[in-house]
């Protein structure tokens, strides 16, 4: 049907309607209003306020002086800690997560094992925050199950650098973060892994490739964009994560915690609205990450038709 015909028919149908049809110009766009208003008020406005507040003094005058906070050694240290925590957990999470995806290729996609893994990953990756922190306190906290067991077996009171009180430091966040990073990798990388077509493997084999050659020359290059894309996603996820760290660490340490603690005091580290300034910094980092992610995803999507 041509568009003209369709429009004509739609108009005909409308005119024939039982409604008093005089007053029925296209009001469909009004239906978009509630959602638009909601998104503007509760997403765009807060985001703009958060980032914008960094450019104002406490008295409401515009200033760029607050940006000097990025030169403050404490702020710099926060960003640095955030970066390396995110980087380490992104790399480890990506490698472990991809390995689990690889192992899951044997499971039936609609089987029970996959459903359990998917649901478990979803819980840990997206909704666990505080509860994951509790889980790790119960595991390698000073009275944790593993800490106690290790102490009983070896006589070592505190587990190397990880157990006991060091759980409450930035380095101690690594295993806890992996607890949601690995599942996030499983969730986001599995579709790419499943996108590997059997025909590629079989074609490679008939052409003389061994399994190792197939992985090195075919599967890995095909998966590479998705893998790095997901690793970036993991980095971004760790970088903006707040709940887990907040449940473990009381003060400072990483950027999201510093944002929260600077909310309660008017002037911190010599800058007004430090929270806004740090929020701006985070948004800049996220924009860069998401641009890179989008680029890699487009590349991966092109191959996975």
């Amino acid at each position: 049907m041509t568009l003209a015909a369709r429009t004509a028919r739609a108009r005909g149908a409308r005119d024939a309607g039982t409604e008093p049809s005089r007053r029925r110009p296209d009001l469909g766009w009004l239906g978009l209003a509630p959602f638009s208003v909601y998104v503007v008020l509760f997403l765009l406005l807060p985001a703009a306020l958060a980032v914008g507040s960094g450019f104002f003094t406490r008295d409401g005058a515009f200033t760029l002086a607050n940006l000097a906070a990025f030169g403050n050694p404490i702020v710099l240290k926060d960003f640095l800690d955030s970066f390396w925590l995110s980087a380490v957990t992104a790399v480890l999470g990506a490698v472990f997560g991809a390995t689990i995806c690889y192992a899951l290729l044997r499971a039936r996609p609609d089987g029970l094992l996959r459903s359990v893994v998917d649901a478990g990953s979803s819980v840990l990756a997206q909704f666990g925050g505080v509860m994951l922190a509790f889980a790790w306190i119960a595991t390698i906290g000073s009275q944790g199950l593993v800490t106690v067991l290790v102490a009983q077996l070896t006589g070592i009171e505190s587990l190397g650098g990880l157990g006991g009180p060091s759980l409450y430091t930035v380095a101690g966040l690594i295993p806890v973060y992996l607890y949601f990073q690995v599942p996030l990798m499983v969730l986001s990388f599995m579709p790419a892994m499943e996108g590997l077509r059997q025909a590629w493997a079989e074609a490679a084999a008939t052409l003389g490739a061994t399994r190792a050659t197939y992985w090195r020359r075919i599967a890995m290059p095909i998966l590479a964009p998705a893998f790095f894309g997901c690793a970036i996603l993991l980095f971004a996820n760790a970088f903006s994560s707040f709940a887990t760290a907040a449940a473990l660490i009381d003060q400072g340490g990483i950027v999201p915690l510093r944002i929260f603690s600077s909310l309660s005091s008017e002037t911190v580290l010599g800058a007004d609205n430090l929270a806004g300034v740090l929020a701006l910094g985070m948004v800049v980092v996220m924009v860069v990450l998401m641009a890179a992610y989008g680029l890699l995803q487009r590349r991966a999507a092109r191959w996975q038709r």
Binding site: A199, W200, E202, A203, T206, I218, I222, W303, Q304, R305
Partner: peptide
């Protein structure tokens, strides 16, 4: 040492 042509989409996409 056989040559095989598959139904579709068997070319290495990269």
């Amino acid at each position: 040492d056989i040559g095989m042509v598959f139904q579709s989409y068997s070319l290495f996409p990269h």
